[in-house]
Design a binder for these strands. Structure first.
Length: 156
DNA sequence: GCCAACGTTGGC
DNA sequence: GCCAACGTTGGC
């Protein structure tokens, strides 16, 4: 199975690329996703070894700031079962979990943030979900071509 | 802080 | 199953 590519959004005030780098083993459990479309991808599609563009939302500027990789494919989100966790979902049954996570590991920060504005202007990125109006998915598929273009923007 | 876009909820 | 109300996301 070929390596696939993804973009994952996080508000840096909540969890930033720096926070990921500072995590034990530079690995974190990507928990708290409560959207079914994103859940399906976390559960079914993200595999160990896949590449992830780390995107900072709700900040200035918004954009892709780093790379990480999936190190563990989908498994049930433990925070859904924990009443003390912020993302507790009383309707999620451990026997038939509703929500899933993957583990991701920090790879590197990009030399600079590739801003949403740049993504919108760059030829070849027109179909990226993140540049589309009203697109709120926090986990999005990215093509190999799009991945390469984003990296060349960061390094060019 | 505003508000457009979108997803979810719940009455009917 | 419809759809209005509501809550959330997230750029600006």
């Amino acid at each position: 199975m070929a390596r696939r590519y993804w973009l994952m959004k996080s508000e840096p005030g909540c969890f930033s690329l720096d926070d990921l780098e500072a995590s034990p083993g530079r690995i974190t459990c990507w928990d708290g996703v409560r959207n079914y479309q994103a859940r399906n991808m976390l559960r079914d599609d993200l595999k160990a070894g896949d590449g992830v563009l780390f995107y900072h939302s709700n900040t200035k500027p918004v954009g892709v700031v780093g790379l990480c990789e999936v190190v563990r494919a989908g498994y049930p989100d433990p925070t859904a079962f924990d009443p003390r966790a912020g993302h507790f979902d009383p309707k999620s049954d451990p026997a038939r979990p509703t929500w899933y996570v993957v583990d991701v590991r920090f790879v590197r920060a990009l030399p600079r943030c590739v801003t949403l504005d740049e993504l919108k202007r760059a030829p070849g990125l027109e179909d990226m979900k993140v540049v589309q109006r009203g697109q709120r998915l926090s986990v999005q598929p990215v093509t190999r071509q799009e991945w390469d273009i984003v990296l060349s923007l960061a390094e060019g």
